[in-house]
Simulated scan of single mutants.
Amino acid sequence: MSQLFRRFISLPIQSIRSFHSFDEVTPAKYISTRLQNGIGSRYVCQLQRLTIQVCKEFRTSFGTREWIANELTAFARQHPYVVIYVQPRRHRPPNVIGEYLSGDRQWIPLSNCDRSHVNWWIHSLLTQQGDPQWRLLKQMHTDSPSIQGTWTPFTNKPIDRTLRIYPDKDLTDIEYPQMTATQQIKELFEQEKLNKTT
């Protein structure tokens, strides 16, 4: 333990920074799919192909075999834009592989998953866009980032408003005066009468 600590201390600062670099852990890339998918136009499902690898006899494939027997046809009818392949593999654990429009692939092991878990994983693949494992790079860069934080409905509001119990009578009196439009017109009329007489 002490040798490892001595070795870590003897490292220069630059190598310590590179030791904790996230570039080696998760690769980075720019977004290659549309973020406004379905807004202002028709929705395009990003999942294009689903490959289910399953063994006909292996016990870890029981839930996957049950999902294939009971729910595969209904899933295929509901989502005709997804091509589904069932690939038999002898004495190996089951997997599901999703291929997306962006060219990315997702691989999920389904060992010892029951039917509901298999259904959950397949619908999870269906609702993704294919690249959650990448660190997404922003299209812009600044040397002086903002420190004000995320906007909330209470940003730039008085602090005492967060502690009030709503509906608050004081706030409604300020924002919604009790004088009606009819009363305001009558008051203006009376002022006009006074101006004409003087």
Rank of each mutant, 00 (worst) to 15 (best):
Y43A: 05
C45Y: 03
Q46T: 00
Q46P: 00
L47D: 02
L47E: 04
Q48C: 01
R49G: 00
L50G: 00
I52H: 04
C55M: 05
C55A: 05
C55W: 04
K56Q: 10
E57F: 08
R59T: 15
F62H: 11
F62M: 11
R65S: 07
R65Y: 05
A69F: 05
E71H: 14
H79N: 08
Y81T: 10
V82N: 02
I84V: 07
I84D: 00
V86M: 06
P88T: 05
P88L: 07
R89C: 12
R89P: 08
R89A: 11
R92I: 09
I97H: 02
G98V: 02
E99Y: 00
E99K: 00
S102M: 02
G103V: 03
Q106T: 12
L110G: 00
R115V: 08
H117A: 14
H117P: 11
W121C: 13
H123N: 15
S124R: 13
L125C: 03
L126G: 02
L126Y: 03
Q129D: 15
G130P: 05
P132Q: 04
Q133N: 15
R135G: 15
L136G: 07
L137D: 12
Q139M: 13
M140E: 15
T142E: 06
D143C: 10
D143H: 14
S146I: 06
I147P: 11
T150K: 13
T150Q: 14
K157V: 09
P158F: 02
I159R: 07
L163Q: 08
L163W: 08
R164E: 04
